[in-house]
């Protein structure tokens, strides 16, 4: 078995600087193997998004270690975390989070603005990625001109532009109807098949069943972890 890409060891997360602090994650131990597809389920407010944000290096743990690819990133600086988010992680959100005033093409380009590659050298790449999600003919459109499913596919293209090893999805189908949701999930399945690790939050058991392993979170603690 390959070394885990993600390893959380006794992770706690508090919100707020003063007592009473909100204790959201209460000792999480979780490993995700390289290339694994894990789903996280749990009731609303159980800390799923908080956990995913930690995995996505959007935040530091309050206590405990987070090893990403074997390196402890729990004390990384803001700039170092930004670099990891840019290069190694692709985010997919429930509400797509596209930038409304930019075109599809420009939205997909955004992560490139913060990386080391030049814009000119990546034009073809942008077109390829947009094509891979089936939106070649929409690249000059604005998000407001697209359907929900199309928006989510743009968001996936954007997540893929820097070819990340880890995809993090927070209820990616939550705002979609079943059919378009299935298309998006199929896309995510493909990405997993290509060898990427995926961690996806969902509250839909059917969706969770597509993953290799389910992790159930309740009140900040993992209560059930097992094969889907």
């Amino acid at each position: 078995m390959k070394a885990p890409i993600i390893s959380l060891q006794g992770v706690h997360k508090y919100y707020g600087e003063h007592e009473p602090r909100l204790h959201v994650l209460k000792g999480i131990d979780l490993d995700v193997a390289d290339g694994e597809y894990v789903s996280i389920t749990g009731t609303s407010g159980s800390g799923k998004s908080t956990l995913l944000n930690l995995l996505g290096c959007l935040d530091n743990t309050s206590k405990g270690a987070y090893l990403l690819n074997g390196t402890d990133v729990s004390s990384y600086s803001d700039d170092e975390l930004s670099k990891i988010r840019n290069e190694d992680i692709g985010f997919i959100f429930q509400s797509f989070n596209l930038i409304p005033q930019l075109t599809v093409f420009e939205n997909v380009q955004v992560p490139l603005l913060y990386g080391t590659r030049s814009i000119a050298s990546t034009t073809d790449l942008c077109h390829q990625v947009i094509e891979s999600v089936g939106l070649s003919d929409r690249s000059e459109h604005r998000p407001s001109q697209l359907s929900g499913g199309e928006c989510q596919r743009v968001a996936i293209a954007r997540a893929l532009i820097n070819d990340p090893v880890l995809l993090l999805a927070d209820e990616p189908t939550g705002n979609l109807d079943t059919d378009t949701g299935d298309e998006v999930l199929a896309l995510i399945d493909d990405l997993h098949q290509q060898g990427r690790s995926v961690v996806m939050i969902t509250h839909d058991p059917d969706v969770a069943n597509r993953s290799q392993r389910r992790v159930d979170l309740r009140d900040g603690i993992i209560v059930e972890a097992g094969a889907a």
Partner: peptide, 16 residues
Amino acid sequence: TKEIGVRRALGARRRH
């Protein structure tokens, strides 16, 4: 604010 959060999630540093 939301846009700023999105950009940060996509790897924008503070200086960006």
